[in-house]
Design a protein around this nucleic acid. Sequence first.
DNA 1: AGAAATTTGTCCGTATGTATC
DNA 2: AGATACATACGGACAAATTTC
Lengths: 140, 140
Amino acid sequence: MPTPHYGQPRYRVIADDLRRRIENGAIPPGALLPTESVLTAEFRASRGTIRQAIAALREAGLVVTEHGRGTYARPRPPGSRETTAPLLTTGQREVAADPELAALFAVEVGTALVELQSIEQSRGAVEAVVRIYRLRSPSQ
Amino acid sequence: MPTPHYGQPRYRVIADDLRRRIENGAIPPGALLPTESVLTAEFRASRGTIRQAIAALREAGLVVTEHGRGTYARPRPPGSRETTAPLLTTGQREVAADPELAALFAVEVGTALVELQSIEQSRGAVEAVVRIYRLRSPSQ
DNA sequence: AGAAATTTGTCCGTATGTATC
DNA sequence: AGATACATACGGACAAATTTC
């Protein structure tokens, strides 16, 4: 189903959607917008179209994009050290078992465990961080 | 040589090639794939095309990529949780935010967080330990 | 401990071919 | 035919995480 642009052009519909999110706080000031590739998936639009939408927002002064970094919702003056909560789900890593984990898994303290971390978000804020620990693959 | 994609797109040809290497063991499980720059040289394709190929493998669950590290051949299906075993809540307590949690919640290191811990059991053995962290009071 | 090199992540700009309205 | 959108591909640049020296 490509290219039904009866009323408005696609890029304008997308730009309006994003503008709404910024104005109602779904994307708080200073926060990073989803990346172009994420928006591409979400809107099922090509990168060129996404870029056209973001360019419209930029021209309207609603966002600022930094080369190599991303696009921010109406940036704030310098001095606000607000760490942009990493959109990166740190995924999986190895950690050493603390005493409690070691007891639960019945292994020695320091044994390598796999930690999977995920983040529960709501309205751009991190609501909860979930960490799941497992023994390393028994099948290898 | 820009953009002759008559038959298959290049990124898919490259993805298929890499998938074959993984499936026939040329790239064993857990091993690092060649770096993007190496693949760029090998396939004489641009980095974007290489990344597109790797993204296809990632979406297929064949590889996992870590920032600054590299791309691994299926080290462990990360997102797939069978969730057959029920979780037993084993406790709730307050902990101080470590640097990573502090960054995620946008609070200072040491801020009190609530930690809920539960375990997933199967035939008496602990399969996984789940720790959920939340802010003690609503931040707004 | 700190600097440099590696490697992936993201963005920019551009170009070409294809398909649809 | 023209405008819009999509898919693919290239090259260059800065950012950030990791590793190495």
